[in-house]
């Protein structure tokens, strides 16, 4: 990825395929990871990532550069993910009050599991968050976006994003500490 975003955008606007390839290499993994977390399905994640890149290329002339290209890509990806979840009726909405009674996917306490196992537990638990909280957590902790960038990505006020983040962390903590259902 060129250091100078403007130069890179110029290349994309001229239809330079090497610039498209560089963009996909730079952000493809992050986009698939984010979309996988949103949809819960690897194949859907790649399809939606392809669609996001295609839309960026198709509409690059409309991109004014107010936000970074990365933020622009995540914004498109986020919208695609929401549309996908809506059309498939796959929203994982969980009322916070229900969380303490909801069994976590794995029974072992955090301290007793390996790092990889703990990471897998967290990812599995993320699925149970409301979609907006899930998106904020992934963009913040996985992709290292600032709250301002997340706000641009999700078309929300920065304060709203921070509130989603707080409630997401609290919900995750409750879910992770919930006693295992022996069923």
């Amino acid at each position: 990825m060129p250091e100078d975003q403007a130069a890179w955008l110029d290349q994309l606007r001229t239809g330079d395929e090497s610039a498209v390839r560089d963009m996909v290499r730079a952000y493809g993994g992050a986009l698939i990871r984010f979309l996988g977390g949103m949809t819960g399905n690897a194949a859907d994640a790649e399809d939606l990532a392809q669609e996001a890149f295609l839309r960026v290329v198709s509409h690059i002339s409309e991109f004014r550069g107010e936000a970074s290209l990365k933020t622009y890509l995540f914004k498109i990806a986020h919208n695609l993910a929401l549309n996908h979840l809506s059309s498939a009726r796959q929203r994982y909405e969980v009322l916070p009050d229900e969380l303490p009674d909801r069994p976590s996917p794995e029974p072992a306490p955090l301290q007793a599991v390996s790092d990889e196992e703990e990471a897998r537990r967290l990812r599995d638990t993320l699925v149970h968050l409301p979609s907006q909280q899930r998106a904020v957590v992934m963009l913040r902790t996985w992709e290292d976006l600032s709250f301002k960038e997340i706000a641009q990505t999700m078309s929300l006020a920065e304060g709203t994003v921070k509130a989603h983040y707080f409630f997401a962390l609290r919900n995750l903590r409750r879910m992770m500490e919930a006693p295992h259902d022996p069923r």
Partner: peptide, 8 residues
Amino acid sequence: LSRSAPRV
């Protein structure tokens, strides 16, 4: 969470 990002 920061350490839980999956490898793609």
